[in-house]
Simulated scan of single mutants.
Amino acid sequence: MSPNRNPSDSSRVLQTADTTFEIINVIKSRDGAKATEIAEHLDLSRSAVYNHLTTLIENEWIIRTENSYQLSLKFLMLGVYVRNHNRLFSVGKSEVQKLAQETGETAHLATEQQGYQINLLKETGELAVGDQYHTQKLQQTNYHHDTATGKAMLAFLPEERVETILDKQGLPSKTSNTITDRDVFLEELHEIRERGYSYNDEEEIEGLRAVGAPITDQHGNVLGSVSVSGPTSRLKNDRYHEELPEKVMSTANIIELNLNMERRIDRPNRK
């Protein structure tokens, strides 16, 4: 069963469709898989797996190569469509690009969906590091508690929503700096609300720091967040504690303003 599913919805789930999505996820996670591997992983008969694979091939969602089944580029077209129709992405893209260019580091635009952090965009400046690592984050859901973008969003979400997310995900440790105590983490979120921006001080990966800020609508609802990350050798002292927080909050503010102005164009008579 999908980790995002409400148990009360289980009675309405079509088992056949559910299995098809599980097969897609196995092919993705293994960067291609044979039918026997899929059958063993999901504890299904090979004939059942072949039926699902044949349906996916007929509908052009997967392809069969000499050695395995692979996801087709049809998923790419679907993903590009979804991202390009996301208002936060379309409005925020140019500002995140500017942020990366001005700082020389890696800039991220993220949002929250189904309790997870979804990275919509990664832009790199001339000094940016870890391009492959940051690119991989675009291809998966991420927890909030160990990133600047994630903490910036959690800090401004309703408390009940935060508690639900933490109940579901916990606070797993990635480094010795990751906050794993719930009370300490909630206090951290309180401090973020007070100052308006968040830190990731080697909490996600050793040697990497980041500064993030929330992006909200005119009612204070969280739409997403923006961040800048880089090595500890450059993100330190005044640059880490003053310069970058100011730049990140300014970028978030501009994105918020552009979203509000776009909304007024679409609905000129609404407040």
Rank of each mutant, 00 (worst) to 15 (best):
G115F: 03
G104F: 08
E105L: 11
E203H: 00
G104W: 07
Q139N: 09
L189C: 04
F156H: 09
H145I: 05
H144C: 10
E202T: 00
L166E: 04
Q114N: 15
H134N: 12
G79C: 04
R83N: 05
E95F: 15
L120I: 00
D131H: 11
Q117I: 11
A128S: 15
V162Q: 08
Q139W: 08
Q113C: 05
N200K: 02
A110C: 14
R193Y: 06
Y143H: 11
G104V: 06
A128Q: 12
N86P: 01
E206N: 09
Q169H: 11
N177G: 01
Q140A: 13
T124Q: 15
E163S: 15
L138I: 07
D167N: 10
E202W: 00
K137M: 14
P172L: 08
Y81C: 02
T103I: 05
Y116R: 12
E105A: 03
E102D: 07
Y143P: 07
R195I: 14
R193T: 05
Q140E: 11
S94H: 07
L154E: 07
L186D: 09
I205F: 13
G104L: 06
G92Q: 02
L186E: 12
H85F: 03
T147F: 12
A128M: 14
H134M: 05
V80L: 15
A148C: 11
Q169A: 09
E187R: 13
N86Q: 02
H145D: 11
N119D: 06
L189P: 02
F185Q: 00
K98T: 05
R161F: 10
I179M: 03
V96M: 11
E105H: 09
G150M: 05
A152L: 02
A155V: 04
L166C: 03
N86I: 00
H190P: 00
Q140F: 10
F185L: 04
A110Q: 06
Y133K: 06
T164I: 14
V129M: 12
A100W: 07
K122Q: 14
A155L: 03
E163C: 10
S94D: 13
G104Q: 06
L189W: 09
E102V: 08
